[in-house]
Each structure stands twice: as C-alpha cells, then as structure tokens.
Design a protein around this nucleic acid. Structure first.
Lengths: 204, 204
DNA sequence: AGACAACTTGACCGACCGGTCAAGTTATGG
DNA sequence: CCATAACTTGACCGGTCGGTCAAGTTGTCT
C-alpha cells in the first residue's frame, strides 16, 4: 500500500470512529469521507463497504469493552452483584457510545469480527446469568435472550437520555433489576426467544 | 368540496390508515398516494401536510383506544390490577399497531389532536399511577414519565416481535411489573424526568 | 529522471424523499 | 349545454443516499 493511501486510511478510520461514536453505525459514508477531508471514492477504494469499515474501526474496541465488562462480572464474588453490575455497565456503554449500542443489536450482519464479538458477548452473558441462576439470586426464567431484548430496546432511548444529560435510563434498569431478583416472580407469559429467534428479530 | 375530491380524500385516508398501521407514521407520502391510486400532488392539495393527514386518520382511533384502556384501568377495583392491566394493554396496542406506538412517543409535534391525545393519555396515566401509589401496591418512586420512557423504548421491539409472531415483549413487562410491585424497592439512582424533559427527549 | 503502477478525484448513475406549480381535465350550477 | 371554478396531474426543484468509473495525479522504484 502506498504511503498516501495509508495516510488516507488513517484519516478515514479516525473520522469514522468519531462519527460512529457520535451518531451510531448508520452515518452516511459520504459524511465520513467529508469529515476525513477525502473524496468518498477513496473511501470505497480503501474499504469497499460500510461493513469492512465498521469491522476495522469498531471491532477491537467493542470486543475489549464488552469482554472487560464480562470478566469484571465473573470476577465478582457475588453472582448477583456481578450480574447487576454487568447489566449496568453494558447499559452505560450503550448510553455513552451510540456505536456500541448498535453493535449489540446485531444490525450489521456482514461484519465478521463484529458478529464474533456478539457471539462471544452472548456466551459471556449466558455464563453470568447461569451463575446467578445457580446462586438463586436471579429469577430462573430470565434468559440471555431476555437480556439482549432489553438491551436492544433500551439502546436508543438510553442514548437520547444520555445525550440530554439525563440518567433516566438508570431508573429503568433499577426497576428491571428489582423485578429480576424478586423472591416471588410472576410466571412468565411466553417462551423466551431462542438465540436464533432473537438474532433474526434484531437483524430484520 | 367537489364529489371527486371527496372520493380521493377517502381513498387517501384509507390508504394512509393502512400504511400507518403497517409501517408506522413515517411512511412516505408519495407511497400513500401510490397506494391510493392518486397523484401525490392531490395528497398535498387535500391535506397539505403529513401532520394533517395523521391527525385526521389516526387521531380519533388513537384517542378512543387509549382512553378505553385508561377507563378500563380506573374501573378496576384493585388499583394494582388496573395499573398492570393498563400497562399490558398499551403495550399490546403498540405491538399490534405501529401507528399507535409512534403516537405515544410524541414524535409528531405539529399534530394538534394527536398531541391532545398524548396529553390526555399522560394525565390518565398519572391518575392510574397515583391511585396505585395511594394503595401502596406500586413502588412510590415510579412516575408517569418512567412509564412513558418504558413505552417509548419498547415500542419498536414489541412491534418487531409481534410481527415475528412472538410475544417476547410480554416477558419484559412481566419483569418490569415484578420490579414495580416489589415490597423492597432499591433506591432509584436518578431523578425522574419531568414531563417537559421527557417530551423534549422523545421529540428530539 | 522517467516510467509505471498505485491511488484520488468528482462527475455521474439511479433511486429515493418532501414539496411546488403550470397546464390540462372534469364536475357542476345556471 | 356550456362556462367556470374546482380539482388532478406529473414534470420539475433541490436535496439525500449508495455506488461506479474514466481521467487525472502522485508516490515509488529502477
């Protein structure tokens, strides 16, 4: 790769990272090129597709943040505290960084790394949840797909609230957590989604 | 108004109603005109703006459905059952009818009737909630704005889930309700949004 | 220095959107 | 039956987007 191409790639990556974190993963590619001070043709040359760009820019970052949250949760002595902390932390990431909100909702099927990140994260979630199940602190009918459903639903509003300087979303997770550690849970009225189902539901 | 104009208005209204209920209130006006078998110029002639069309098509329907749910809730002997039923019913409306999901989230500021519907609905919600507060069955820190926040967050996913034939959203409201009737609620970590704040947050 | 490959550019494509308006059509009242 | 006001139409405007590609530029290697 020629030196100038390398420079442009760097400019594009940083512009993309900025815009992704500001406005989510759907920002227009032309806008990214504009911010990078480069023709949009160059962007297509160097990356070929939005997915490739996303993968390069967000993949590692998302992987490290999510896995950090997961390992922190598992390192927690108390399974419930670990679970609650994990949920809170992930919501915080979503509120803070629109790109991460989009990552978890799996809206970008053709990003190989990112999908792997999702899968890892889902698996980690399952561990955290089942540890809390065994502990008896988490209601037994709550599944990883329920958590993912919740996260997907709250990402946009958490983002909006955070952008407005409000922590209103924290109230929601407090309510949810109280519902999840309840000693006397109501019967759940429907079967949980299978991983395939929620995957399909989110990507559609 | 000439007879043919009247006919076209009817065609447009029904086409709009269909598309609103299928895809939400943001469908393109040209698409509505297409489905009505009429030029889009005619749509602009007869209604002038998307807001006017929405108001005419959705206003009454939304008002009647929402107020029906609210009166049913207040008619309930047990305040908690009334509250829980109201929440469930509204979620059901959102899951069933994308247009109603959009109504509650106040995304259409220039629709006078619809905004009135929202305000009425919000007031009704406050009554339902405060009745349950007085009763002691609902945790005291839960406000109407919390409910609206929840509804706004869950509308899109409930819709998607329902479209996929899944009642997964019912699980979420079960968790929430258990968190709301908890005898030993956690302290809420942030102030609730004021009506103005949540209004601004949703319309932005 | 010069040649050649690597790279960049921006015009261009087709598709959407909301919105306007002159010109043509049609209902209707006298 | 016809004049006219009411109405409809679709081309057009300016804007967005993703995406392509011929022509021009520039780095690099000998």
């Amino acid at each position: 790769m020629r030196a100038d191409a390398q420079r442009n790639a760097v400019k594009l990556r940083t512009a993309a990272a900025e815009l992704f974190q500001e406005h989510g993963l759907q920002v227009s590619l032309k806008e990214i090129a504009r911010r990078a001070g480069v023709s949009h043709g160059t962007l297509y040359n160097l990356f070929g597709s939005r997915e490739a760009l996303i993968d390069e820019v967000i993949g590692d970052l998302a992987a490290s943040r999510l896995s950090a949250a997961a390992t922190r949760a598992m390192a927690c002595d108390d399974p419930w505290t670990g679970f609650a902390g994990y949920l809170t932390e992930v919501c915080e990431l979503q509120a803070t960084d629109p790109a991460l909100g989009d990552v978890l909702t799996r809206r970008f099927p053709d990003t190989s790394r990112l999908m792997a990140v999702c899968d890892n994260s889902y698996a980690a979630t399952e561990s955290i949840i089942s540890r809390a199940h065994r502990d008896g602190s988490l209601r037994p009918d709550f599944t990883a797909s329920d958590l993912l459903f919740f996260l997907a639903a709250h990402a946009p509003l958490a983002r909006a609230a955070a952008a407005a300087g409000s922590g209103a979303w924290r109230r929601q997770i407090t309510f949810l957590l109280d519902g999840l550690r309840t000693p006397d849970p109501s019967p759940s009225p429907a079967a949980p989604l299978t991983p395939d189902q929620i995957n399909h539901l989110l990507t559609s």
